[in-house]
C-alpha cells in the first residue's frame, strides 16, 4: 500500500508509529479518567479493592523481600570494591541506603510487580473479555471499569509504596550483613553514615515514584486486558504487551521523575 515515492516510506512508518502511540496514550488516559470518576460513585467496591490490595501487596511479599535482599547485598559488595580503592569503605552503608531508597527499591520492585501482578491483571481481564464475562457485567448493569479496573489501579497505587518500604529495609539489612558481618566494616560507623546522609526526602521521593509506578503497571495491565481481542492467543499477546509496555514506561518515567524531583 506504499503510495508515495520510495524515500517517503520510512517517514510513513514513523508517522504510523507516532499515531499509534498517540491513540494508545489517549485510550490509557481515558481509562484512568473513567476509573477516577467511578472511584467516587457508589457502590464503593470496598471488597474488590481489599481483594486486589491483597493480591498486589500481600501475595508479592516473597518476591519483594527476595529481590530487595539480593539487590542490597550485591550493591554493598560492588560499592565496597569501589570504595576500598581509596579507603572510603565506611561509605558503603550510606551508598547502599541512598541507592535503594531513591532508585533501586522503587524501580526493581516495580519491575518485579509488573511481571507478577501487572501481567496477571492483563491475563485475567483479557480472559474475561474474550469469554464475554465483561459483557455479562454490562448486561447485569454493573460497570466493569468500576468493578474490575478501578480496584486494581487503586491497589497498585496504594500497595507499591508499602512494598518499596519493605524492599528498602530488607535491602539495607542485606547491605549491613554483607558490609559489616562479611566484610568487616565497623557497625557503628556503617549506621551513623546512613543516618547522616539519608534524608527523609530521599525516602519520600522514592515512595512517590513507587506510587507512580504502581499506577503505571496496574493501569497498563488493566488496559491491555480490557481491550483484548482474539481469543486465547489475544490474551497471551495482551499479557506480554502489558509487561513490556509497563516496564518500558517505568524505566522512562523514572528518569523524568528523578530529573524533576531531585
Amino acid at each position: 500500500m506504499s503510495s508515495g515515492p520510495r524515500w517517503s516510506r520510512p517517514l510513513e512508518l514513523v508517522g504510523q508509529w507516532g499515531l499509534r502511540v498517540l491513540v494508545e496514550t489517549g485510550r490509557l488516559g481515558l481509562l484512568l479518567f473513567q476509573s477516577l470518576v467511578w472511584m467516587f460513585r457508589p457502590p464503593f467496591r470496598a471488597k474488590q479493592i481489599f481483594k486486589q490490595m491483597e493480591f498486589v501487596g500481600v501475595k508479592s511479599l516473597n518476591v519483594t523481600v527476595l529481590t530487595g535482599f539480593f539487590v542490597g547485598a550485591v550493591f554493598a559488595l560492588q560499592s565496597y570494591y569501589g570504595f576500598s580503592l581509596f579507603g572510603a569503605e565506611t561509605l558503603v552503608g550510606s551508598t547502599v541506603a541512598l541507592a535503594l531508597t531513591r532508585e533501586l527499591g522503587p524501580v526493581v520492585t516495580a519491575l518485579m510487580i509488573a511481571g507478577r501482578a501487572g501481567s496477571a491483571m492483563a491475563a485475567e481481564l483479557g480472559t474475561m473479555r474474550v469469554t464475554e464475562q465483561i459483557d455479562a457485567l454490562y448486561v447485569m448493569a454493573v460497570n466493569p471499569v468500576q468493578y474490575l479496573v478501578m480496584p486494581r489501579i487503586l491497589a497498585g497505587v496504594i500497595m507499591l509504596p508499602v512494598l518499596v518500604i519493605i524492599a528498602d529495609f530488607v535491602g539495607i539489612v542485606a547491605g549491613y550483613i554483607v558490609g559489616v558481618i562479611l566484610l568487616g566494616i565497623n557497625s557503628g560507623i556503617f549506621i551513623a553514615k546512613i543516618v547522616e546522609y539519608v534524608d527523609f526526602s530521599d525516602i519520600s521521593m522514592g515512595l512517590i515514584k513507587a506510587a507512580f509506578f504502581g499506577l503505571t503497571l496496574s493501569l497498563v495491565g488493566c488496559y491491555k486486558g480490557f481491550y483484548t481481542v482474539g481469543g486465547a492467543e489475544g490474551v497471551g499477546r495482551s499479557t506480554t504487551e502489558a509487561v513490556v509496555m509497563s516496564s518500558v514506561l517505568i524505566l522512562i518515567s523514572d528518569y523524568f521523575l528523578t530529573a524533576v524531583m531531585f
Binding site: 464475554e132 464475562q133 455479562a136
Partner: peptide, 11 residues
C-alpha cells in the same frame, strides 16, 4: 440474559 457460552465469572 443467558450467553451462548454462559459467560460465568470464573473467579
Amino acid at each position: 440474559m443467558l450467553f451462548q457460552e454462559a459467560a460465568l465469572f470464573d473467579s
